[in-house]
Amino acid sequence: MKNIREIALEEHHDFVGAKMGMWLFLLTELILFTGLFILYAMYRVRHAAEFHAAATELDVVIGTINTLVLLTSSLTVAVGIEALKRRNRKLAKWMVLLTVLFALTFLVNKYFEWSAKIHHGIFPGADELLSRSQGEIIYFNLYYAMTGLHGLHVLVGMGILLWVYFLIARKPSEKVVVAPPNIEYLKGAQLIASKGEQERWVIDEIKDDVVEVEVVIKKDPKKAGVDIPNIIKLENAGLYWHLVDIIWIFLFPLFYLIT
């Protein structure tokens, strides 16, 4: 009698759990920024006039353009998720790539905006800035701290989206690794990998010197089903990206539109 063992390629995806973890993480990001918003609110009630005066020096046009860029990027990533759910990988790929490009556009705009300010001697610790009223100093210090931290989040978000892009672009495959301790129980046996009732794959006998077995089943992208692992990743990346957008939705009027 032949020694045959079977491994099941059963998938454990707690879609809701993964999303819940992400939402909780977003909550912590929100509170992180709240610290800065508290400082902004307290300094603003104390130095209302100076805040207004300082705000006139920011460029509303660049601010508005950046707002629109981020809003549109939120749309593209949302469409991308939707496309992936509908098995339209091509559209999903394009949408994620577009989102990354929008993120880049935002950062480039920010770079020019900051350089112009720094060129005029308005940056933390500069003599030009320190010669102004305390309210204006605090305004610009907060401006750099808040948009700087936000910019950092844009950068991180961009990186995450890029990573997910490459995941989606890869050919979909099922992978399962049989490693110690489970491998011990499979020695000398022939393996059958199965998924559901219909699909079965037979694998060679496992010799004694085998340390690890990796079962990879490549699929035809056109026939592939719903790509659940990548949907979870893209959806969570999207959630993060939307949060970055929401923070900017508040930063924009508070810094640019209080003239």
Partner: peptide
Amino acid sequence: SHHSHEEIHGIGYGILVLVWLGL
């Protein structure tokens, strides 16, 4: 193990674009 597909709710592209317009 939840791998049922009904957990994946879809929204129409149209609604997303409308929301964007609103924004």
